[in-house]
């Protein structure tokens, strides 16, 4: 029941959108594809849905080869569901009709009689809390309600793979958090396999079992949220997901040296950082001290108030620009020189 993507390439004329992508999504897994816009994540999703034909490589869903170099299976013949960014609810159908539609049309539907289909549709609407609004048209629903209907439509057939294309990006901040919890709950309750595309790291970290970070058409790192966040495989992942500082200096064995000789230990740091003489460190893991207490010194360039904390941007003597999170209770006069300590 897993989805296997092997050696997938996608070219648009002379632009290569995907390069040698290999990925396995196990049954019941919630996988988030995370990356900035233009990284190829939407292309990957569209290839899985069958809206695009790959240049080379193979896609297998639930034991069925849906795309390889010889043939491509059309979207309607794949055992998938999809939740669109724009919801894509049909304006001329009521809520229940939207949910019944895949049951009536998909060859993978397990619910054959009209009675079974209606029962199943109502069951799913109940699950997303939309049963009482089942006779409404999309124009009569709020953004969050549309989202719930779109999800219900996506899962009603219990597809082998549910594709979600930035489903929360059109919602306001509060609703986003609510729907995030909702999707996690649904995943636990129904246990389907989900591929979730997003550019929002909080969504990926909060919901997924596995995160796949993409950039420039390549998979940069795949792993659990903890692995991605705490031990980034390369500078890109460190910056994009961990929002780490990449401090320039030099490595001597397992010791990193910067400024006028300030040192830090190697902890969970991939080899590539050593090769590039970079030290990845999160803003939270740095502290500002008096100039005399550190050999890594600089001046405060900017202070951005963020509520509990201040984000302080420092320009160091050796040319590094470093972000530090500091409790907003403390005040740092900007004209003074400060040092930085690694936690």
């Amino acid at each position: 029941m897993s989805t296997i993507i092997s050696d997938l390439n996608m070219n648009f004329q002379d632009y290569q959108a995907l390069k040698d992508v290999d990925l396995e999504i196990k049954k019941g897994e919630f996988v988030a594809i995370l990356g900035p816009s233009g990284c190829g994540k939407t292309t990957l999703l569209r290839l899985l849905a069958g809206f695009l034909k790959p240049t080379s490589g193979k896609i297998e869903i639930d034991g069925m080869t849906v795309a390889d170099k010889d043939s491509v299976v059309e979207p309607n013949k794949r055992n998938i569901g999809m939740v669109f960014q724009s919801y894509a609810l049909w304006p001329h159908m009521t809520v229940i009709q939207q949910v019944l539609f895949p049951l009536q049309n998909s060859r993978f539907s397990k619910f054959k009689s009209a009675d079974e289909q209606r029962k199943r549709a109502e069951e799913v609407l109940e699950l997303v809390g939309m049963l009482q609004l089942k006779d409404r048209y999309p124009s009569e629903l709020s953004g969050g309600q549309k989202q719930r209907v779109a999800i219900a439509r996506g899962i009603v057939n219990e597809p082998a793979l549910l594709l979600m294309d930035e489903p929360l990006s059109n919602l306001d901040a509060e609703l986003k958090i609510e729907m995030r919890r909702e999707i996690s709950r649904l995943h636990k309750e129904i246990g389907g396999t989900i591929l979730y595309v997003t550019h929002d790291q909080a969504e990926a970290l909060g919901m997924a079992d596995k995160i796949v970070v993409m950039s420039k058409g390549r998979i940069q790192q795949a792993g659990t949220p903890g692995e991605i966040f705490n031990s980034p495989a390369n500078p890109f992942v460190a910056k994009f997901v961990g929002q780490s500082n990449l401090i320039k200096g030099r490595w001597e064995g397992n010791v990193f040296i910067c400024g006028n000789g300030e040192t830090a230990e190697r902890k969970n740091i991939a080899e590539i950082f050593l090769e590039e003489n970079l030290y990845p460190v999160k803003a939270d893991n740095l502290s500002i001290v008096d100039a005399e207490a550190s050999k890594f010194r600089g001046r405060i360039k900017e202070v951005e108030y963020q509520g509990f904390k201040n984000k302080i941007i420092m320009l160091m003597e050796d040319g590094n620009t470093v972000q530090v999170m500091a409790n907003s209770m403390y005040d740092f006069p900007q004209e003074k020189e400060y040092g930085i300590k690694f936690a």
């Binding site: 979207p75 309607n76 669109f84 724009s86 049909w90 539609f101 049309n105 060859r107 439509r153």
Partner: peptide, 18 residues
């Protein structure tokens, strides 16, 4: 007509004519 409306129908199991 947003293209997603037709794609949603494709995903639901409809051929082009349907």
């Amino acid at each position: 007509i947003p293209r997603e409306l037709e794609q949603a129908a494709d995903i639901s199991g409809c051929g082009k004519w349907k």
